[in-house]
Design a protein around this nucleic acid. Structure first.
Length: 112
DNA sequence: AACTTGACGGTCA
DNA sequence: ATGACCGCCAAGT
């Protein structure tokens, strides 16, 4: 029986992303296996603001390192400011040096 | 109950 | 390299 829903598992992973690093919707979905798709992770982030927990949703971007979710942070550049405050450089909506900033749960975390 | 809409990503032309 | 297409499936209409 599943104690935790898919969304909860997503939130657990996101909370483990270190400051100054980012991961992607697809990477989280892959880490959680066949339980959900990247779209579901995106939907989980969409709902994350309703959670009492503090979810660092700004550390989740798309697979190219683009800030595709920025519109959901209230102000137009809130997501960008949060990332820059952690030392991440952004031009336009693109994270610079995305390869070095990328944090892959499948490689950094133990298997589920 | 049926149809549309995405914070996505892989494939193919 | 760029763009269309499509599978994914929870929520909102």
């Amino acid at each position: 029986m599943e104690t935790l829903g898919f969304f909860d598992q997503v939130y657990e992973v996101v909370k483990l992303v270190p400051p100054g690093r980012v991961t992607s919707y697809g990477a989280i979905a892959a880490y959680l296996g066949s339980k959900g798709s990247a779209r579901m992770v995106g939907w989980a982030m969409n709902q994350s603001h309703k959670m009492s927990y503090n979810i660092p949703a700004h550390r989740v971007v798309n697979r190219k390192g683009l800030l595709t979710g920025k519109a959901h942070f209230g102000g137009y550049d809130v997501m960008r400011q949060l990332l820059e405050s952690e030392g991440i450089i952004i031009e336009g909506d693109q994270i610079i040096n995305f390869g070095e900033r990328f944090w892959d749960p499948a490689k950094e975390l133990f298997p589920l």
